[in-house]
Design a protein around this nucleic acid. Structure first.
Lengths: 257, 257
DNA sequence: TGAGAATATGCATGATTCGGCAAAGCCGTC
DNA sequence: GACGGCTTTGCCGAATCATGCATATTCTCA
């Protein structure tokens, strides 16, 4: 039996980095106790990692450097932090051993990046960028095949649906273009809507994470009625009336931290 | 009777590699006891494997280079400039309108990054990271589907082959693990070799770009004989004797600038 | 400004590593 | 079969490293 204190040096730092990625901050004293080493050792680790540009050292611990270090996050831009907050919350809702589908979209890309390295999940996706992020985190990945739609950033259409037929999912994390109490979940492309609907049929539950700008938006093509959505994660400062409307439709509402 | 300590050098290293793949970490002292050799021998093995890029050496043992910390970014970083030079030269060899396949691998990832935005190409790939780079450059992309092999960084196996059946390629840009005038093009995984061979059948020409460390390397699994390779791009300072050997096999040799 | 926590620095210690060296095994040649 | 060259391996000593502790310094917060 391997106990937590028998970590090799590199492993300890990798674990700290994962912790940083996940929650954005670590506290030296907590890490020391948790990993069974002295605070000095943790501080040395943090100092090293900071000088290697992997985190920012602060009094008492360390912080993740602002998400502008990676190319994709730069593209996500200003909305990055709120998306990352949604993503961290969503990451906590994926149980070990689950088979999950991450639909294309920047919100789900953030979720892929929020997953801890080596997470015990099998994740299928139609978006190459998401698959690449999953691979970097050493997570079992299934990539759907076909011509990639540049607007969606993922594979849709017949080949994707054919590949998706082989899947049996515990959780579908849906990228949504709009959600509205009357129109339900909607998106901007007919084929994309068709694809999402198909994947939803193959999944036991449907999870969506919704930025504020998607609330009360009805896009042209209908994806699912609200009754098919199991759970929604909304931003910490999301409008209470709209949240209540979704909850009234039977959706389990979670606010991101 | 062959016991565990009668392993040949290569076998021992292969076993260590398996162990690394499996659990992500090995401890020198444990391996020494388990394999019945001295710790010095294990350390020598680990040192060799580390300098061959197969693991990361840490105090007390070694770790798998986990994609999160090292994989693409660092592998690109280490040999970045020479790979970028190969990539620039290769990019110039893809004619407008062509249908191209970019095989998984850091060299081809560099090629994808070297392509100009909006290039008039249709590019198929089995590697999500490459597909993501192509999408960022607004290039028509076809992604093969299936379970992604973490070591290869791309999809291989039956589903990938099934998807590849639909392709008819002008140029296959092959990622090679080794090229040798006797062994031909070789790689480290049986399934990967099988996949590459299949794609090669569907392509009118085969292009490879070869870093110096791949020259005169014969990996375990044979991919193609040299006669099937149309063109090879080698580094500016590649060994002249080895270049001549490839040219003698009928390969069109180009030196990168 | 002062109390208390957090940090940097130097040092001791035990474990690990590196380089060189020699013994043993393997190979081809004479 | 004997010989020399080559590789692999184990062992030794010196050097290096990771870690914890003690001490002086710096920082935060009230």
């Amino acid at each position: 039996m391997m106990s937590i204190q028998d970590l090799l040096l590199g492993e300890r730092q990798a674990l700290i980095r994962t912790r940083l990625d996940l929650s954005g901050r670590v506290i030296a004293a907590d890490l020391a106790q948790e990993l069974g080493v002295s605070e000095d050792t943790i501080r040395r680790d943090l100092r090293e990692m900071a000088s290697a540009g992997l985190c920012r050292r602060v009094y008492g611990g360390a912080l993740r450097l602002s998400p502008s270090t990676t190319s994709m996050n730069e593209r996500i831009g200003i909305a990055g932090e709120s998306k990352a907050a949604l993503a961290r919350t969503a990451a906590g809702l994926l149980p070990a051993g689950a088979t999950v589908f991450l639909d294309a979209g920047s919100t789900n890309h953030a979720l892929a990046r929020a997953l801890p390295t080596g997470a015990d999940l099998t994740v299928a996706t139609n978006a190459p960028a998401i698959a690449a992020a999953l691979l970097e985190r050493d997570i079992a990945t299934i990539q759907l095949g076909g011509m990639v739609d540049a607007r969606v950033g993922g594979v849709i259409g017949t080949s994707a649906i054919r590949d998706a037929e082989a899947l049996r999912l515990d959780i579908l994390v849906l990228g949504v273009c709009g959600i509205d109490q009357d129109a339900g979940v909607t998106c901007y492309s007919f084929e994309d809507a068709e694809f999402k609907r198909f994947v939803a049929q193959r999944s036991r539950s449907v999870l969506i994470s919704v930025t504020n700008d998607k609330l009360s938006i009805a896009a042209p093509y209908s994806v699912l009625p609200l009754s098919r959505v199991s759970r929604a994660i909304i931003e910490a400062d999301a409008d209470a009336t709209q949240a209540a409307a979704l909850a009234a439709a039977g959706i389990d509402i979670l606010r991101a931290v």
